[in-house]
C-alpha cells in the first residue's frame, strides 16, 4: 500500500494529517490501560523472590489447579477441532434449510455472557436437569465434576475452530479436488491427501485460539465445576480465592504463570496466522 505513494514525496513529509495525534493518543491509552496494569503483575511477583515464587506455584493445590485448567482446556480444544471441522465443512460445502440460521448460531457462545452460559449448562447437566436425568442412570455425572468443566470449555471454544477453518474451506480451489477425483482418488483419499493438508494451519490456529480462551475461562466454568480443591478447582478460581484471602502475592504468582503461557500462545497464534496466509497466498489483513 505504501508503494502507491508518489516517489517524489520525501518519506518524512506525511500527506495525511493526524499521525502524531492519533498515534500519541493510541500509545497513551494502551500504555495506561494495558501495559501499566499488566506490568504491576510482574513487579508484584518480583517482590516475592524466586524461591518463594516456586514455593507458591509448587504447592499441591496450585499445581492441581494449573494441571486441571491446562488439561481440560486441551481436551476441549481437541474435541472442538474435530467437531468444529465437521461444522465448518457442513456450512462451507452444503446447502440445507436454515443454513444461515445455523451459521449465525455458531457465534452464540461468543455473544452469550459467560455467567449465563455457566448457569444454563449447570441446569442442563445437573442430575435433575434436561440432559443430566438421562445421563445419571448411565452412571455419568457431568455437573460438579471435571467433566463439567470440559463441557463448559467445549461450549465457549467451538466458534474459534469453525470461524478459522470455514473461510479456508470456502477458498479452497475446487479444481484440485476435481483433478484428484479424475485421477481416481476416492472421496476419503481426496479429503486426507488434498483437503486436510491445506487445512492444517487453520485447524492448528483454531485449536490454539480455543485453547488460549479456555485456560483463562472463568464465568462459564465456576457454576458447573463444583470447585473442590485438588479436584475441580480451576486456576482462575484459585486466583480469586487467594485474592479474597488477601494473599495478593500468591494470587499474582499464579496469574503470572498463566500470563506467560498466554503471551507465548498469542505469539504462536500470530505466527500460525502468518503461515496460514502465506500458504494460501491470500493477502488477508489482520
Amino acid at each position: 500500500m505504501s508503494a502507491t505513494a508518489l516517489p517524489t514525496v520525501p518519506r518524512a513529509r506525511r500527506v495525511l494529517p493526524g499521525f502524531g495525534l492519533t498515534l500519541g493518543y493510541t500509545l497513551t491509552y494502551v500504555s495506561l490501560l494495558v501495559l501499566l496494569p499488566l506490568a504491576t503483575a510482574f513487579f508484584k511477583t518480583a517482590e516475592l523472590g524466586w524461591s518463594e515464587f516456586v514455593a507458591v506455584i509448587a504447592a499441591p493445590r496450585v499445581l492441581a489447579s494449573l494441571e486441571l485448567s491446562f488439561g481440560a482446556a486441551a481436551i476441549a480444544a481437541l474435541v472442538n477441532s474435530v467437531a468444529g471441522l465437521l461444522v465448518a465443512w457442513v456450512l462451507a460445502r452444503y446447502d440445507f434449510p436454515l443454513r444461515r440460521v445455523v451459521d449465525a448460531l455458531v457465534d452464540l457462545p461468543f455473544a452469550l455472557p459467560t455467567a449465563v452460559a455457566g448457569i444454563a449448562l449447570t441446569a442442563l447437566y445437573a442430575p435433575s436437569g434436561w440432559l443430566g436425568r438421562w445421563l445419571a442412570p448411565l452412571g455419568i455425572q457431568v455437573a460438579y465434576t471435571p467433566l463439567g468443566i470440559i463441557v463448559a470449555l467445549i461450549f465457549i471454544g467451538l466458534p474459534f475452530v469453525v470461524r478459522t477453518v470455514q473461510p479456508v474451506l470456502e477458498d479452497l480451489d475446487a479444481e484440485v479436488e476435481q483433478a484428484a477425483a479424475t485421477l481416481g482418488a476416492t472421496r476419503l483419499q481426496t479429503f486426507l491427501r488434498i483437503i486436510l493438508p491445506a487445512l492444517w494451519p487453520a485447524l492448528l490456529t483454531g485449536f490454539a485460539l480455543a485453547f488460549a480462551r479456555a485456560i483463562g475461562e472463568y464465568g462459564s466454568v465456576i457454576f458447573i465445576a463444583g470447585n473442590m480443591p485438588l479436584r475441580s478447582e480451576i486456576a482462575p478460581l484459585l486466583i480469586v480465592t487467594k485474592l479474597e484471602q488477601y494473599q495478593y502475592a500468591a494470587a499474582t504468582a499464579i496469574a503470572v504463570v498463566m500470563l506467560v503461557v498466554s503471551f507465548v500462545l498469542l505469539l504462536g497464534i500470530n505466527a500460525l496466522q502468518g503461515w496460514s496466509q502465506r500458504r494460501l497466498g491470500i493477502a488477508r489483513t489482520t
Binding site: P37, L38, T40, A41, K44, T114, A212, I215, G216, E217, Y218, G219, P236, L237, I239, V240, L243, Y248, A251, T252, A255, M258, L259, S262, F263, L265, L266
Partner: peptide, 13 residues
C-alpha cells in the same frame, strides 16, 4: 489473551 480474572486482578494491584 488475558484471563478475565487476571484483568480484574491487575486493577486490584
Amino acid at each position: 489473551a488475558v484471563s478475565p480474572v487476571i484483568a480484574g486482578l491487575i486493577y486490584v494491584l
